[in-house]
């Protein structure tokens, strides 16, 4: 079984790597890179390196590739992209997927908050440090992350949001009032500058 999974994802890693080099569109290249990185994460899982797999997904597939995509989208805007959405149902699907993830998290925590006193299902946060059973790597990292380092962890979320806002503000074609008012021909900007 392990051998089968290994060959499937090893092949997937190679196909993704080839796609990164061969794809014409830089966005497709970046997405092939995600495929490679996720496949490598599965290979890590096969070696019982859960934390490494999680970090591979979060840091490489999550952060770095999203950064690539951001740079490509913000800087590579030489030709006018069609602003109409070609996938018609992507917005409802995005909302639905978000709701499902939220429901999943709430379900996994057993209807208590991450900081709550009683966690009925899932991994108990409460004091297993004294009993000697510290759990595996992921459980230990998670325990520290959601107890001692909860506050900086939460702040990092806001920091990332602001980093996105800041990069969009800087990279957006223009922050000019005049050009904005061309885009949205509402009279507010004009009456503002007139008054």
């Amino acid at each position: 079984m392990n051998a089968v999974i290994f060959f499937i994802f090893a092949a997937s890693t190679l196909v993704g790597a080839g796609g990164v080099v061969l794809a014409r569109n830089p966005v497709h290249s970046a997405l092939f890179l995600v495929q490679t990185l996720l496949s490598v994460a599965v290979l890590f899982l096969l070696q019982d390196a859960e934390l490494l797999a999680a970090v591979q997904v979060i840091v490489y597939a999550g952060a770095i590739v999203v950064l690539f995509l951001f740079v490509i989208m913000l800087i590579g805007v030489d030709r006018r992209e069609a602003l109409t959405e070609t996938l018609r149902f992507q917005r409802p699907i995005a909302v639905a997927l978000g709701a499902i993830v939220l429901a999943e998290i709430i379900f996994l925590t057993g209807h208590t908050w991450a900081t709550g006193a009683a966690t009925q299902s899932g991994v108990p946060i409460t004091g297993s440090t004294s009993s000697g059973d510290l759990g595996n790597n992921i459980q230990r990292v998670a325990r520290v992350l959601f107890t001692d380092f909860l506050w900086p962890f939460e702040l990092t979320a806001l920091l990332l949001v602001v980093a996105v806002v800041g990069s969009v503000v800087l990279a957006r074609g223009s922050g000019d009032r005049s050009e904005r008012s061309i885009e949205e021909p509402s009279s507010t900007a004009d009456s503002e500058s007139a008054s």
Binding site: T115, A117, G127, T147
Partner: peptide, 8 residues
């Protein structure tokens, strides 16, 4: 080990 949160 539960973090005690003082919201005030």
């Amino acid at each position: 080990m539960n973090p005690v949160i003082d919201y005030h």
